[in-house]
């Protein structure tokens, strides 16, 4: 077996960098999931304890533990795309 090329190593490193980024994903009919290194604060900059590595932020407005999601989107039949929607460029 030949040794991995420099390009391969660069590629592998780039992949690691990607994993180190924060990723925010809107899920269909549900919350925004936040993964990776992030800091959650209130508007005065005080940290809000996330308590887990992946968190769900409410985007339906009905959670009783905002900014976190508490599953209320199901009861209120919240509908939204699992991605970007309705956005216009001028």
């Amino acid at each position: 077996m030949s040794r991995p090329s420099a390009r391969f190593e660069l590629g592998a490193r780039r992949e690691l960098i990607t994993v180190d980024e924060c990723r925010i994903t809107p899920y269909r009919d549900g919350p925004l999931l936040v993964r990776g290194p992030f800091k959650l604060t209130d508007q005065d900059g005080n940290e809000i304890d996330a308590r887990r590595e992946t968190i769900a932020l409410c985007r339906c407005g009905h959670s009783k533990i905002r900014p976190f999601c508490d599953g209320s989107h199901t009861t209120t039949k919240f509908r939204a795309a699992g991605g970007s929607e309705g956005r216009r460029r001028t």
Binding site: Y27, R28, G30, P31, L33, R51, R52, T54, I55, A56, S63, I65, F68, C69, D70, G71, G82
Partner: peptide, 13 residues
Amino acid sequence: VEADAVHEMIALH
């Protein structure tokens, strides 16, 4: 309440 709101999305999608 909080954990399974996260797990729900991951599990389903």
